[in-house]
């Protein structure tokens, strides 16, 4: 379990959120939702140590998060990458083994096989030697999921994995996330498409400059919370069926 306590993050003295406390459970897919600028990406970046937090602690099974860094896999928003980089699909997946290899050990046959196997799981084996810029958004996202597979991480954090990708890729990624859940991994997904929230996530964190509510999706995903985090219009649209029936 990831336990976040009293976490405060500020950019240039303007706090994004203060004193956030939330838990992420193993064996669950947890979604983080909230309007633009609610601090979703900031929260996971602070957990990952990519940005400094002013206050608070993050632990994983009672150990400081920084000590378990090698067990963490992070799939960031794709737009932040250089897609012209001279690297092909298989080599991107192989970088997933770098963390376990450590310094001075180079990936060999075993790592290559594991990476090819992971590519097969995301149905991209025939794209292995293609330069990454020549993939569609969905294929590229699946490449990063394959990299996450070979990392064999216990904690998997994904930032907007379904943005701009095709349905086939989305389904394939979701299937793998469910496998990870069954392996008792901790999966955290920053998400914006509210339509699929109940279908995709076991637990849900609703943010708006802080945590509005969190817990099992069935309890937390309700008209009142969505109205508070987003707007009453959105809440009406999303929940009117249930109200009507």
């Amino acid at each position: 379990m990831i336990d976040i306590r009293d976490l405060t993050v500020a950019y240039d003295d303007t706090p994004v959120f203060t004193d956030v406390a939330v838990q992420f459970n193993a064996g669950k897919i947890t979604g983080i939702i909230g309007p633009n600028g609610a601090g979703k990406s900031t929260l996971i970046k602070a957990v990952l140590g990519l940005i400094k937090s002013q206050e608070g602690t993050v632990t994983y099974n009672d150990r400081p998060f920084s000590e378990v860094q090698k067990k963490v896999a992070y799939v960031e928003q794709r737009k932040e990458l250089d897609l012209n980089f001279p690297i092909n699909v298989l080599d991107v997946v192989i970088t997933g083994t770098y963390g376990q290899l450590g310094l001075f050990r180079n990936p060999g046959k075993k790592e290559k096989l594991a990476s090819q196997e992971a590519l097969k799981q995301v149905s991209l084996e025939e794209f292995a030697s293609r330069q990454i810029g020549n993939l569609s958004g969905g294929q590229l996202q699946r490449v990063f999921v394959a990299r996450t597979i070979v990392q064999e991480a216990d904690i998997i954090i994904m930032d907007e994995p379904f943005v701009g990708i095709d349905l086939q890729s989305e389904t394939a990624i979701m299937k793998i996330m469910k496998q990870w859940r069954d392996d008792n991994k901790t999966i955290i997904v920053v998400h914006h498409d509210l339509n699929k929230v109940s279908k995709y996530f076991d637990d849900l964190v609703i943010m708006n400059h802080g945590i509005l509510d969190y817990g099992p999706t069935a309890r937390v995903y309700n008209a009142q919370n969505i109205e508070q985090a987003f707007s009453s219009d959105l809440s009406d649209v999303l929940f009117e069926e249930e109200v009507g029936s």
Partner: peptide, 22 residues
Amino acid sequence: SIFYKELLVTSFDETYAKTYGL
């Protein structure tokens, strides 16, 4: 030759390299 993989991963995806502890 010694740090090829570290140079590759930090050039391609520095954020990712940080998250695995490099």
